[in-house]
């Protein structure tokens, strides 16, 4: 039986990458759909779903006229 830590390690790495990418995107974006500090909290504390929610819903809708 392989070590439990080694089994869960990919999970942690994926989680970490997701959070970093979401934070970089949040930092670069001028305006988001919710206040920035709220998104930062969501990304930080809601695991997995938080960063994905940000990447899906975070951007402000644009309008071309």
């Amino acid at each position: 039986m392989p070590d439990l830590f080694m089994l869960v390690l990919p999970l942690i790495i994926i989680e970490f990458i997701l959070k970093i990418i979401a934070f970089i995107d949040l930092y670069r974006r001028e305006s988001t759909s919710l206040p920035k500090w709220l998104w930062a909290l969501i990304i930080l504390f809601v695991n997995t779903i938080g960063p994905i929610l940000y990447l899906v819903l975070g951007k402000q809708r644009r309008q071309i006229t």
């Binding site: 869960v8 990418i21 995107d25 994905i52 990447l55």
Partner: peptide
């Protein structure tokens, strides 16, 4: 970032169930 989060989500789904 759709190239990133969709594969990652499925990766997590596939990982969680056997564990």
């Amino acid at each position: 970032h759709r190239w990133l989060w969709l594969p990652v989500f499925f990766l997590l789904l596939g990982l969680m169930q056997p564990l």
